[in-house]
Structures are given as C-alpha cells and as structure tokens.
Design a protein around this nucleic acid. Structure first.
Lengths: 247, 247
DNA sequence: CGGTTGGCGTCAACTGTGTTGGCATAAGAG
DNA sequence: CTCTTATGCCAACACAGTTGACGCCAACCG
C-alpha cells in the first residue's frame, strides 16, 4: 500500500494494467466523470471505477489519497473547463455574465459530479485562477476594492450555490426527475383553491417557470445592481476630483 | 421485514424497545438530528441511529422506507421549524426578508442535516405551506401574477441554494473548517503579487468577507429589485386606469 | 376477563463499500 | 545486461444499507 501518493509530474514508470490500459491522473478523472454520468452521483465507487479503467480498485490509491481526494480533483477539472471556455470582451458586465454562465454550465454538463464537488472549496490552482480573473475584471472596470470584493463574493457564491442546486435536480435519475417536474403540473396544480388559493391561482405560471433555473435572472439582478454601485462610485470620485481642483 | 411502512397516524400498537424507549417518527427524526450534529453529515447510519434510539437498526424500516425516506422527513422538519419561527408584519419586503433569513437559519442550525436534505424537493405538506405563504405575501402586496411567480422563484431557490452552500462549509469537521477559513488568510494572502496581483491587493478584504455568508446581501438585492418592479407595475396600472377614465 | 391476532422489535445474514498490507513483476536506471 | 523499486494485483478487514424469518406482547373481540 502506498505510504504516499506519487505526484503526477514525478511519475516515471508507467506500467500497463492487466487489461492493457495505461493509467494517469487525467485518465482516471475522465473515466470517473463517465462513470458518474452513467451510474449517478452515488454510483462512483472504487470498484466500479477500477472496472471501468480495467484496473484493480486498490490501484486508485497510487494516484489519489482516497475517494475524497479524487472528488476534489474532479471539481478542479470542472472549474478548469469553465475557464477554458471563457473568452473576454472588455466589458466587465458582459464578461462576468459569460463567466458565471460558463461555470454554471460546466457544472451542469456533469450534474452527478457537480453534486459531489460543488461544496468542496479546495484552493487548488485553477480555482484560484478563477478568483483572480473575477477580481481582475472588477478592479479593471474601476470598482473600488471594497465594492469589488463584495461583488466578487456575491457573484462566485451565487454561481456555485445555483450550480449545486440545479445540478441536484438534474442529477436525479430520469424517472425521479420527471416525477419532480410533473409535480408542478400534478400535485401543485391540483391543490384546491380553498386551502391554497395563491398556488391555485398561479399554478399554470409555476409549472412553466419552476422547471428552469433562475440563475440567469439572479445573475443579471446582481450585475445590474453592481453596475449601479459602480456609477455611484464614479460620481463620488468625480465630485471629489472637482472639489480637489477648485481648492 | 415490513412489506409496507405503517403511516404514523395509523400506528396503534406501540411497543417498548429492549432498552425501554418507545419509538415514533418524530422521536426518530429528533434523534437523527442529534446524531447528525454529533457525528457529521456522513455519520448518520442505520446502526448508529439504532444504537442512539436503543433499538435494532432494522426497526427503522418499520417507520421509514429506507435511509432516503428518513432524509426527506428530516428536511420537512427543518422547513417546518422555519415556518414556526416566522411572524408577519404586513410589509411584504420585511416579511419576505424575515422568512428567507428564517429558512436559511433553520437549515444552518443543523448544517449536517441541511447538506443531506436541501436539494431534495419533496412536495411534502410543510414545504407546500411555505410556497403558499410566499406567493400570498407577494400577491397580497399587489405584484402581478407573472412578476410574483418570478420573484417567488428567485427568492426560494436562492434561499435554498445558499442554505446548501453555507451548510456545506459549516458541516465540515471543526478541524477542516478552520483549515478552510484560514485559507483566506494563509494561502490566498500569500499568493505573490507578481502572479496574482488582484488577490494580493485585496487579500485583507477577502479574509474579512469570505468567511461570512453573502446570502443576506443577495437577498436584499433581490428584494430591492422586486420593489422596483412593483413600483413600475403600479405606475403602469395607474396609467391604464387614467386612460380608461378619460376615454 | 381470557384468547387471538398481527404489529413491531430483534436477530442473523446478504451484498457492496472504502481501505490496507503483502507480494509479484516489469519499467527504467546504471 | 542486471538491479531497484515503482506500480499493479490479490486477499482481507471493518463497516455500510437492507431484508427475511422469528417471536413477543399490546390491543382488540367475545
């Protein structure tokens, strides 16, 4: 049993598995994502992943300290993909909107994986890169540091929180998810107006809305609010500058 | 083994456990909350809960269809407690703010339980009661139905999403959580300005902010935005009424 | 008041989980 | 080519959720 996991860079001897595959951290993470998609968020087990790789389960412990460590690596991968998909335009609001949607979408591409990883804050390289990028966009746009940090905080936590929430429902089995979605048109739509007047009155609207993510709506609200704060900050700075000149 | 779980109301014959306790759904849920608090979000096991109740693990299957079913019951309990703690004042914005904070806080009272339950939308009675209450507040305040439903959606999903996110970090072991929190003052604060200028410049602000929940900030932003929409809707209605009269 | 019934708690066992120590072997260093 | 040792495999451990069979006793009926 490995006393310590050998870091990927230092790995010299690559040996074929009994079934012929050659292992690596990235291969394991990719395969884990596939297993998660096929078997659900609780379906990633050491034995199953071993079988999918054509390797003994215990071999995984040569690459990761445990299933928990593997989970964090999967999270890093999702965050990394979001950053790779992101392109900047120069408009802070457009860029942050795009990045938020990219992160949200990257996690939702692998809902079963997202469920496992989204609440794990790891402080790994690509996660830090994302934070640096967001703060860069805000400070570059002229947000005062205190405001930039507040907006950053609301932005990143909302994005991750909604990624988790939305991934949660997507990660259900097809059967369970359809049951959940139909609930709005069955259970909720059939509540008698006598006991639940407000749900009854809006049942049709609810059924149309509740099956989609509100994240874009919330994101735009946050960004518009930030834009308003930026305008105030600019006015404030301009007023100060005028006062400075006229002294 | 029970072919079917007997519903709590229909339960007639209550028999003492070998160790003297008398079981019930609520006793099991209360005990489960205690076990979760003491042993963490992964520490709720059938055997451990059985031991805490002074009963055989398999007895739980007389009350719940499985650990999954028990989990949903725990979620219902948390939502119910939030509603019980809630009092209305007549101001829609004050009331919704209070309800959001109540739900958020109720889940955070039992972070380990919240982590397990928050992404499970069950459609159980008290969950429906909460939905009816929120829609009632909004429609009572004069929101047009379409707007009310949009605000409701953003409100409830944000609240649950942040409850999940924040519970996630609270549910870590004390040791792990302190490591996480210190990361802002250690790892992030020590990133060289050469590679991470923006994080380096705001490290002090970050360390002060990131260890608290942004939910209240986001909630206020959402509610203020809703208030603006309500004013527009009122103006619109007033204009229509004037046009009606002058015809 | 006693007999009967069946709801409910218990026991033992099944499958599947993460994880570990020991071992064989082939890849790469010399 | 030989030698080291990293790396993959095997077997086993403790623990998980779950289930079927069993028997006791609370509650109902006469």
């Amino acid at each position: 049993m490995p006393k310590q996991v050998v870091p990927e860079q230092a790995r010299r001897r690559r040996r074929k598995t009994r079934q012929g595959s050659v292992l690596s951290e990235t291969l394991i993470v990719q395969t884990a994502l596939r297993v998660l998609r096929e078997h659900g968020s609780t379906g990633l087990t050491a034995r199953r992943l071993g079988a999918a790789l054509g390797a003994d389960p215990s071999t995984l412990y040569r690459y990761f300290a445990g299933m928990d460590d593997l989970t964090r690596a999967i999270g890093e991968e999702l965050m990394g993909r979001a950053l790779d998909d992101w392109t900047t335009t120069g408009s802070w609001q457009v860029d942050l909107r795009a990045l938020g949607l990219a992160i949200h979408s990257s996690y939702l591409q692998h809902p079963q994986a997202a469920v496992l990883t989204v609440s794990r804050v790891t402080g790994r390289p690509r996660e830090i890169a994302a934070d640096e990028a967001i703060l860069g966009v805000l400070r570059g746009a002229g947000f005062p540091d205190a405001t930039a940090v507040r907006v950053y905080h609301a932005f990143i936590d909302s994005t991750l929180a909604f990624a988790a929430l939305d991934a949660g429902s997507l990660a259900l089995t097809d059967e369970a998810r359809e049951t959940d979605e139909e609930m709005w048109s069955s259970t909720y739509a059939r509540l008698p107006a006598a006991t639940h007047p407000h749900i009854a009155a809006t049942a049709r609207l609810l059924a149309g809305r509740m099956t989609h993510s509100v994240y874009p709506v919330v994101l735009d609200t946050l960004l518009n609010d930030a834009a308003a704060q930026l305008r105030t900050a600019r006015r404030h700075r301009a007023a100060q500058a005028r006062a400075e000149r006229s002294r």
